[in-house]
Design a protein around this nucleic acid. Structure first.
Lengths: 232, 232
DNA sequence: CGTGCACTTGAGGCACGTCAACGTTCGTGG
DNA sequence: CCACGAACGTTGACGTGCCTCAAGTGCACG
């Protein structure tokens, strides 16, 4: 029995819709790998040698200016695709935020397989277009929203995106309480803020009764409507 | 003779590499359209009903917050692809900056044609992946660079991207002098700044002898090395 | 029970936004 | 050809939101 048969993201990743014989081929090309929190899979600027599917966990895509200012340019969740097929160098690093399991392919192998399987390329195209939409929306946030709006937007987005991952939830319903896969520093890196500003904004939202912060890594959304108003 | 035969971007757009019979089919589906500066082709939030190739000119992709703050999330040049195939609503408006000619397709027609032509989808995928890379690089600029660095980076990028469009150039050599397709307001919208800040930074670069500003729409890059240093 | 790290809180400064006045270019019609 | 006005751009004075620097505070580890 191939690993794909038991894959958690079997029906949501780009491999969905492949014939079982194709899946078999893909399975022989790829291998599973577990990443510890903080462990990197791809480094910014390196030649693009591997691509992967996320099976479990959350990873960040990050890029930095020469003098060390970091910006998180994307966050990927289970079933998402990682890496840069068909070309050149990696524009950003990929690092696990939580413990993560991924399904890794050599880029050359994957490129060849993809070129021979239009259905896979189509899935990949749809996913890439979606990612581009999300990234562009994030640009508006980065350049035009205030710190308060940024933090509120971030918390709402987390409660939406973590639904797909979590177990104890009604499908489609955003979460009321969840654990952040991010440290304060990482939240700051996502939002283009400093750690102090994030901390202050979180405290304000708590003080105003919009959210609760039972522990440093968990969040309760108490007044979702208010949070949406603040997010702008 | 089909319009495609004389198309300026025949060998660079996603149609490149199609058989002449396929091109013939595509030609019957699409139609040419000329846009005046400021004219919009697609509006943010509208259902995605059309896609297009840029033949000539420069267009902006823009998105706004509810209260009217605008952010330009992308700029497209000849041979670039516009629109959102395969799904939903347009995440951003598309507006001509210069007079522009585009090759427009009904999205439904294009989707069907693309699904039947893997080579086209592959081109589109490569283009989309490239656009995603560029967009992510721009995120770092928006959130982590200073006004001075932003303006310097913008001018360098313009001199690179306009090469492909211009006529009087050595291929691959960035331009020393060029006309901006942007007003100051639009530059501000690209960089996430205000018009006043852009103006001040341009004046500073001029005062320091790094650039020249012969007219309000044209730029000379006098000291490219210095500009690159400033861009960070 | 200390040591270290993540986070919070506070005080102060600065880059950029805001508001306002002025200069320059360009189109339009007399 | 010039007069006029509107749009665009520049410059200045001032305010403020976020960053910087620095000192706590609380939790997790040996």
């Amino acid at each position: 029995m191939s690993a794909c048969d038991t894959c958690l993201v079997r029906n949501r990743a780009i491999c969905a819709g492949l014939e079982s014989s194709e899946l078999e081929t893909l399975n022989t090309m790829g291998r599973r790998r577990t990443l510890q929190p903080g462990e990197a899979l791809i480094w910014e600027g390196d030649e693009s040698v591997l691509v992967a599917n996320v099976i479990e966990g959350v990873l960040k895509l990050s890029s930095a200016t020469e003098d060390g200012r970091e910006q998180i340019v994307g966050v990927v969740y289970p079933a998402d695709f990682i890496g840069r097929p068909f070309a050149g160098a990696a524009g950003h690093s990929v690092t696990a935020l939580t413990e993560a399991r991924v399904c890794v392919f050599a880029r050359a192998d994957f490129d060849r397989f993809a070129s021979e399987h239009p259905k896979l390329e189509h899935k990949l195209l749809e996913r890439t277009l979606g990612e581009l939409d999300r990234t562009r929306k994030w640009m508006v946030l980065l350049s035009r929203k205030t710190a308060q709006e940024k933090v509120a937007t971030f918390l709402l987005e987390m409660s939406d995106r973590l639904v797909e991952t979590g177990c104890d939830h009604v499908p489609g319903m955003p979460l009321k309480s969840f654990d952040l896969p991010f440290s304060r520093q990482q939240i700051a890196d996502v939002l283009g803020l400093t750690i102090e500003t994030v901390s202050r904004q979180m405290t304000m939202l708590k003080r105003d009764g919009v959210i609760g912060l039972p522990t440093r890594r968990s969040v309760d959304i108490i007044d979702r409507t208010a949070l949406q108003d603040i997010a702008g």
